[in-house]
């Protein structure tokens, strides 16, 4: 199986539901573009493509770390993850994705009530 042109890594996104009420558990969806190479596939010239993937995701809410994910290349390309969060207060939700080249992709979304 050959892979298409290497997609650019980046474009981190956080999707929040509308109309967040205080103390409700919401589902946060997070997405970043990344090839997530396993190191087992080959390019069009037949050369092995080196392993290259998001290895960790750090989630902070109002400056407090609420979750941390450890990933391998077994997570699909353009990794998507959704997780719950209790919206206790209005504060920024910050997500940082770190890949195996040490590059960090960050995104912030404001948890605000109403809307």
């Amino acid at each position: 199986m050959t892979l298409g042109a290497a997609p650019a890594a980046g474009d981190p996104r956080i999707l929040l539901p509308p109309g967040i009420r205080q103390d409700a558990v919401i589902y946060v969806r997070a997405l970043v573009s990344h090839p997530m190479y396993t190191g087992m596939s080959r390019d069009e010239q037949g050369a092995l493509i080196r392993e290259y993937y998001i290895k960790s995701v750090e989630i902070t809410y109002g400056g407090q770390r609420v979750a941390r994910f450890e990933w391998t290349s077994g997570i699909s390309r353009d990794p998507y993850v959704a997780f719950p969060l209790r919206a206790t207060h209005e504060a920024p939700l910050h997500i940082a994705w770190t890949d195996t080249k040490g590059k960090v992709y960050t995104q912030t979304a404001a948890i605000a009530f109403g809307g």
Partner: peptide
């Protein structure tokens, strides 16, 4: 995933601040 090259695919460390424990993702 028993038969994947990397058997341990992912670990999700959670805290009570999440209010619930669930994960939705996509794997190879």
């Amino acid at each position: 995933v028993d038969h994947n090259p990397d058997i341990y695919v992912a670990g999700f460390q959670l805290t009570p601040a999440l209010g619930k424990a669930s994960i939705d993702t996509r794997i190879k």
